[in-house]
Amino acid sequence: MSEQHVAVVTGANKGIGFSIVKSLCHRFNGIVYLTARNASKGEMAISELNKLGYYPLFHQLDISDEHSVKRFRDYIAANHGGIDILINNAGFQIFRPYKEPLVDVALKTIRANYRNLRDTFKDLVPLLRNDARVINTSSGFGHLSMVPGAKIRAALSKPNLTVDELTRLMDDFIRSIRSGNNIKDGWGDDPYKISKVAIAALTFIQQRELINTNVKVNCINPGYVNTDMTRHMGVLTPDQGAEVAVYVALDAPNSLKGSFVWADKSVIDWTGPFPDK
């Protein structure tokens, strides 16, 4: 079994994830795993990095597939014994105009961005070593102010919110859309925003659950990055978008935990006004 430090990046065959892997290969003293749902695309990404002089390892990981997650978990446990950096970068977005009912968009988006991250973390958390750092990729849209309704904002930011309660809130969002009451109920009509808010709320819960450990869990807004997720309209390069994730993974003080870190590496008030930056 290898005793080297291990970093894992999900959804890393392109975009910000690819750039995170590249930067970690340059700076991290250990093994870097590039993971992706599609094995051939993952291997192509590895080949591209090899040409640049970087040598991460590849392992197939589809966070929507419970068996894939468990295979990856067991592989890391058997070969390395643990994880030192876990960057949950995999994400999903359906763009407007939607070609299917809003409730179907919401179901797919909440499942991909919230439920899959929740379940993957649950499977991998036993592998997190002392002083491990976990980074969940949210968005500027993940700020609590993106939720129109004050009562819902209060429920999402409750200091002792649990994973089960957060999941029930996401179920309420789906039911509200299905009944056609999502605007009146205060949810709005953007499943992507709600999913990214949920990632932030989940991050704070995860940190509270690990309060008696040295594991640090934070979420980030990488900024408006030129990737498929922005239909290549972003103003930042993927390398620039990766900077905040790498900062939190390698350079942030040990006191940084349970926080939302903005693209400029500042810690923002998730419950306050939207950051003017």
Score class of each variant (00 low, 15 high):
E165A: 15
T137Y: 06
L169Y: 10
V197Y: 14
T203G: 04
H143N: 05
T137K: 09
L128S: 10
T109G: 11
M146A: 15
S195C: 01
V163W: 02
Y192V: 06
G223R: 13
L210Q: 12
I177D: 05
D119C: 12
Y192E: 02
S176E: 05
R118P: 01
P159T: 02
G223S: 12
H143K: 04
T227H: 09
D228K: 05
K122C: 08
N181I: 05
G186L: 00
S176P: 03
P126V: 08
Y114T: 03
N113R: 04
N212Q: 07
I211V: 07
C219L: 13
S176N: 02
N226Q: 13
N226T: 07
F204S: 09
A201F: 09
C219Q: 07
M170K: 02
N218K: 12
N181F: 09
R111G: 00
S139Q: 10
I110A: 01
D185V: 00
V197E: 14
T109K: 11
F173I: 05
L166I: 13
T137E: 10
N182C: 10
H143F: 04
T137S: 13
G149M: 01
G140M: 10
E209W: 03
Y192G: 04
A132H: 00
V215P: 03
F173W: 07
T227Q: 10
A201C: 12
D131I: 00
L169T: 06
V134R: 08
K122I: 07
P191M: 12
L124S: 03
T109S: 10
D123H: 13
K196F: 03
Q206M: 11
V225G: 11
L169F: 04
T109W: 08
F121Y: 12
L202W: 01
A154M: 00
N116P: 01
D171T: 13
G186V: 01
L166G: 10
K196M: 07
G140Q: 08
I205T: 06
T230L: 07
P222E: 06
T227S: 12
V225R: 11
G149N: 02
D119K: 14
